[in-house]
């Protein structure tokens, strides 16, 4: 199984990309959405802007890419702009990148049509805007105008976790699709397919453990599966080892250290996550929430209330490090015991 192949690139190496569906009909269990999208793209000119909402790792970005490939054909890459709003969340990104791309009239494919008369002309360019709910509301307002002004040349596929964080005017300009959380059997089936393909044995228990940890995030599940296989067989203990490598567990360690009163250690660990791993402040709370939920703490409601307060303060304050540090200090003062160690 080790691929010594000289032409391997990073995306072949990682199963998450290797097994990313290339056709929308291969997307794992979002049947209603797929059906309706397939109907919509029969008449490409009438395709509205799209808004995909749903949890992480259920196929939103993949669906957007598959759609682009089907609509734009072989040279789709040239006519698609992929942006991740959580890396550039401000109005500057909308002005510089989106506006510029949307303003360019679609690249005519006449040159390529030389001698090949039946090649389709590209109907428009596509902008895929991932994690759009991380955009500031100012940036979203700017985006709204661009969507209107450029609809002749450009289609938007806007992707978010929480629809409520997308401003109304944008919602009303898009056809909205709610991607649902994947069930255990969906995830298991897909993981098993990968195992068969890679010629690997697996323990059923190990696969369920992956599901219960990732809560239906297929992307994270595949990463854990592959890492477990890097440790050896796909069994419970290797899956546990793999899970320990995840950044989410590292966020969990920050929380545990704070609760144990090791405030300074927890701060150093937090700074490492922020400045080495590039963890965003909002993601810190997202992963903390998942981790704390699973910790079986005796005073979990008290801890959740503190977290609620500081998650809120993070959104209204301007010094994120002060807010996160104060959060850890509050945890350190109340402390906790783990109810039942499992």
């Amino acid at each position: 199984m080790p691929s010594n192949n000289n032409s391997t690139n990073v995306t072949d190496l990682m199963w998450v990309e290797k097994y990313r569906p290339r056709k929308i009909e291969h997307i794992v269990n979002q049947k209603d959405i797929i059906k309706s999208l397939k109907n919509l793209i029969k008449k490409p000119d009438e395709l509205p802007h799209l808004l995909f909402a749903g949890p992480a790792g259920v196929g939103k970005t993949t669906t957007a890419i598959c759609l682009s490939m089907e609509l734009l054909g072989d040279d789709w890459r040239r006519n698609v702009l992929e942006l991740n709003a959580s890396d550039e969340r401000g109005i500057k990104m909308v002005r510089d990148r989106v506006k510029e791309f949307a303003a360019v009239i679609k690249i005519p494919s006449r040159i390529e049509r030389k001698g090949n008369g039946n090649k389709k002309e590209v109907p428009y360019r596509i902008i895929i805007l991932d994690e759009a709910d991380e955009m500031t509301s100012e940036a979203q307002t700017a985006l709204r105008r661009i969507i209107e002004d450029s609809s002749k040349t450009t289609r938007f596929i806007i992707i978010c976790n929480y629809l409520s964080q997308i401003i109304e005017p944008i919602q009303s300009r898009c056809a909205i699709f709610h991607f649902k959380k994947l069930e255990e059997k969906d995830i298991q089936e897909d993981l098993k397919k990968i195992c068969t393909n890679e010629g690997l044995d697996y323990e059923e228990q190990a696969l369920s453990k992956i599901y219960s940890y990732t809560e239906g995030d297929l992307r994270h599940s595949i990463n854990i599966l592959q890492t477990a296989s890097a440790f050896g067989q796909i069994n419970l203990s290797n899956v546990t080892l793999a899970m320990g490598l995840s950044g989410r567990s590292k966020v969990g360690e920050v929380i545990k250290l704070a609760i144990d009163g090791k405030f300074n250690d927890s701060r150093v660990k937090l700074l490492e996550l922020l400045y080495v791993y590039g963890l965003s402040y909002t993601d810190f709370f997202k992963y903390s929430y998942q981790e704390i939920k699973n910790m079986k703490l005796e005073n979990i409601e008290e801890i959740m209330s503190i977290m609620a307060e500081y998650d809120y303060r993070l959104t209204v304050g301007a010094h994120p490090e002060i807010q996160l540090t104060s959060f850890l200090a509050q945890l350190a003062t109340i402390g906790s015991n783990i109810k039942s160690k499992k």
Binding site: L13, D87, L245, S246, S280
Partner: peptide
């Protein structure tokens, strides 16, 4: 390359990636 934000990559991929490269 993996079509995720840097924060997601740092947390959900990076250490896995290093491990996988190391055994391959």
């Amino acid at each position: 390359l993996f079509r995720v934000s840097t924060s997601t990559f740092g947390i959900m991929y990076f250490d896995y990636f290093i491990k996988i490269v190391s055994v391959n």
